[in-house]
Every structure is written in C-alpha cells, then in structure tokens.
C-alpha cells in the first residue's frame, strides 16, 4: 500500500517530500468528499468524515511523538 501514492504522478509532483502518510491523506480526500456528495448525510458518511479528520490528527500526533 505504501507504494501506491508514489506511483501517482500528480501526488509525487505535488508533494515531492516522500511522506506516505500525507500523500495517502491527500489522495483519499477527494474520495471522502465524493462519497459524501453522492451518498448524502448518513451514519456511514459521518463516520467517514470523522475518520478522515481523526486519521490526520492521529498521524500528526504520531509524527510529533516519533520525531
């Protein structure tokens, strides 16, 4: 999975910093928003949006702790 973002030229051109976590968040952002736009407000989409923000916060904390 960690190889996936680096093979996408757009993401590589955008970041170029080689941080797989943020690249994955950037890639999954449009997917999350697209799913919300298609399915509307429901338990699933609410959980998806919360999960997206939570994933960012947890990754940020993890980077802060390990660096």
């Amino acid at each position: 999975m960690s190889q996936l973002p680096s093979t996408v030229p757009l993401v590589r051109a955008l970041s170029g910093d080689g941080d797989r976590g943020y690249e994955l968040l950037i890639l999954s952002g449009p997917v999350v928003i697209g799913v919300i736009a298609l399915l509307g407000r429901s338990m699933v989409t609410t959980a998806l949006a919360m999960g997206y923000i939570l994933a960012f916060v947890l990754y940020l904390v993890w980077i802060g702790v390990t660096s």
Binding site: Y22, I26, A49, Y52
Partner: peptide, 8 residues
C-alpha cells in the same frame, strides 16, 4: 490537505 480537512 488542509482544504480536504476543512471541507470534512
């Protein structure tokens, strides 16, 4: 990245 987070 911040835009996607803000939208959510």
């Amino acid at each position: 990245l911040f835009t996607f987070l803000s939208i959510s």
